[in-house]
Write a protein that binds this DNA or RNA. Structure first.
Length: 613
DNA sequence: TAACGAACTTAGGATTCGGCTG
DNA sequence: CAGCCGAATCCTAAGTTCGTTA
């Protein structure tokens, strides 16, 4: 009934239908009822009775006990050796400690494209010149960035890196052991009696802010986090973490309605950063499970919702029409919700609700298709979304209406925002928000594609290729892109060389077969006949190897700019993959690596081959 | 109801690892 | 054994969502 994964007992094969159709909150309760270390086992020990369980199901409570060591702080800045100089206007200049540290941030990045951007340079220079970073004298001298010469600093760090790489084995081993020791000391916490891995146990080191895309704040100084900036969260009765010697925490609090262990406010966007648990933890696993259960509930009502929004395309109310068209995009194209963003604070990116007129173009007819919408905008992380989509006629007509008398920079959906959209979705299904559609459509697509692409008689390699294709279909739907790997051309060439070599071998084998056949015909003895068979077999083997290489090449080419990891990690119900593995005899290790197996431990244990999303 | 803040998930690029090859 | 390459891991930015406040 129960099974131990890592150091946690999980319910074995919780029937997925058990919680189907209930509120998200009920999932947790069902889990708790069945999870021994949350319920029965504790009671048996007599340490906690029903009262404990009651407390546990208290609204918003995430844990009962939390103990940890606090975050790890990287060592302070080490000044440059005397022979490494910074030059201003051709003259060597010894900088104050603070100013020098910031100079090294820039120097280290010299061969990065960032440092060629004007915004980056200006932001850096502005922050560098601030009083608390540069002394008055330094500020008097250092007036222009283009007179600053960081090349010696840059070289120093490049050399240092090389030296580290060239270190003898034992030295490297020592460094590794030290890192392991840190992981051991700071990398875990005790949550409700179980040792759980922390996701990010180090505070973020200082440096220059690297925003994505055209970020107005790129190059600004990201300050060093000190214990005095950090809030610790743990249980009241636990051993309170010790701040580093000579320091104090900003605050120690005991809030069991949140999941973070420590937090601080970051100085670029003034937002809060958190130390949280690793995805392998029960806390995160449970959350993940819930997420997919909500998506599965959407499966039950999605037809109704689709009918409803089609109906709303004809509504008298503009508000409703816009909502219905937006929802159609979110559903059909898996667009993100698209919150409004503060102008000038971040890069100019949009999602569905924040689309502007300039982001779409309408074509009554395009490439032989009717009512085509051409999307072209920058989404999350400044990744371009470009797509030409034939839409249903009422959608097309509505879009024309929404765009009437508007400037390119105006909102397409001017009567809509994410909050009103989500409010509406909440009415359609408990727990439904815009992002659930992405999860649902991703997972259902994987399931359908796997069904369509997998043949039971295929070998393992072919099955994995099918899996990757299904995975890729989802990644394309969700627009998960990556920069073409730097080594792509080269590795593609290598593969091509292999293919060519194989072809040559094949041609040779063919000739040999021909010769063997002729020989057999002439001699008509057993030996020459068996030789023909041998050559035939060799030929078949080579042919198989060639097709394998060719599929590999196709796979690689198709994957050039597609990132499979994001959907695998965040959108695909792992139980679909696990069930597929079991059904087709594919070892789960072929699909999930070690980290992924840890994250999806709950699903690997729970799903049998019958599982259906 | 808009603005803000908090908490959490999702994201791609950078860095490191580890196995293979010449 | 160095040097290369793809995979794994690390890193932290950038989203979504929801609750609170003015």
């Amino acid at each position: 009934m129960w099974t131990c994964i890592g150091n946690i007992l999980w319910p074995k094969r919780v029937a997925p239908t058990l919680c189907y159709g209930t509120k998200p909150g009920c999932l947790l309760k069902a889990w708790r009822r069945q999870c021994p270390w949350l319920g029965a086992a504790q009671r048996r020990e007599g340490s906690a009775g029903p009262k404990w369980q009651e407390e546990k199901s208290e609204d918003g409570v995430k844990w009962k006990q939390l103990e940890h060591k606090g975050p790890y702080f990287a060592p302070l800045y080490e000044p440059l050796p005397d022979e490494v100089h910074f030059y201003y206007d051709g003259n060597a200049m010894k900088l104050s400690l603070a100013a020098e540290e910031i100079a090294t941030f820039y120097g280290k990045m010299l061969d990065h494209e960032y440092t060629t951007k004007e915004v980056f340079q200006n932001n850096f220079f502005n922050d560098w010149q601030k009083a608390q970073e540069m002394t008055v004298e330094e500020k008097k001298i250092i007036k222009h960035l283009d007179k600053c010469d960081f090349t010696e600093i840059h070289k120093y760090f490049v050399d240092k890196n090389e030296a580290r790489k060239a270190l003898p084995k034992e030295e490297k081993q020592k460094l590794k052991e030290e890192a392991d020791r840190l992981q051991e000391e700071f990398g875990y916490c005790i949550l409700d009696g179980h040792r759980e891995k922390i996701g990010n146990f180090k505070t973020e080191p200082p440096g220059l802010f690297r925003g994505r895309g055209d970020h107005p704040k790129m190059g600004m100084l990201k300050k060093r986090i000190m214990p005095e900036d950090v809030i610790i969260n743990c249980s009241r009765d636990s051993k309170i973490p010790e701040p580093p010697p000579g320091h104090k925490w900003k605050e120690v609090r005991f809030d069991n309605t949140v999941t973070w262990l420590a937090s601080w406010t970051e100085n670029i966007q003034n937002s809060i950063k958190y130390i949280m648990l690793n995805p392998s933890s029960k806390l995160k696993g449970e959350k993940d499970w819930q997420k997919y259960e909500v998506a599965r509930r959407l499966k039950g009502v999605v037809d109704k919702i689709r009918f409803q929004y089609r109906f709303d395309w004809k509504s008298r109310e503009m508000r409703k029409r816009q909502r219905a068209v937006a929802l159609y995009f979110i559903d059909k194209l898996a667009l993100r919700a698209g919150n409004e963003k503060e102008e000038g604070e971040t890069a100019d990116t949009v999602g569905c609700c924040s689309l502007r007129v300039e982001h779409i173009q309408l074509h009554r007819e395009l490439d032989g298709q009717e009512h085509v919408v051409e999307f072209d905008f920058l989404g999350k992380d400044c990744i371009r979304y470009y797509n030409k989509v034939p839409v249903e006629k009422p959608v097309f007509k509505n879009l024309q209406l929404f765009m009437e008398n508007k400037d390119p920079g105006d909102d397409l959906f001017d009567r809509l925002n994410t909050s009103t959209l989500n409010k509406h979705l909440q009415d359609l299904m408990d727990g439904l928000t815009a992002k659930v559609f992405r999860t649902y459509n991703a997972s259902i697509t994987l399931q359908e594609q796997l069904r369509a692409l997998t043949s039971a008689e295929d070998n393992i390699a072919a099955k994995i290729l099918s899996y990757n294709r299904a995975n890729r279909a989802v990644a394309i739907l969700c627009n998960h892109q990556r920069a073409t790997p730097k080594t792509f051309e080269k590795s593609m060439q290598n593969l091509q060389t292999k293919i060519d070599a194989k072809k040559e071998q094949l041609a040779m084998a063919e000739q040999e077969l021909k010769r063997a056949k002729a020989d057999a015909k002439a001699r008509k003895d057993v030996k020459s006949k068996s030789n023909v068979d041998k050559k035939k077999k060799l030929l078949a083997k080579l042919e198989e190897q060639l097709t394998k290489l060719c599929t590999q090449a196709t796979d690689k080419e198709e994957n050039k700019q597609v990132a499979l990891g994001t959907s695998k990690l965040n959108y695909l119900d792992p139980r679909i993959s696990v069930a597929w593995c079991k059904k087709f005899g594919v070892p789960v290790e072929k699909i999930y690596n070690k980290t992924q197996r840890e994250k999806f431990a709950w699903a690997i244990d729970m799903a049998d081959e019958e599982f259906e999303f």
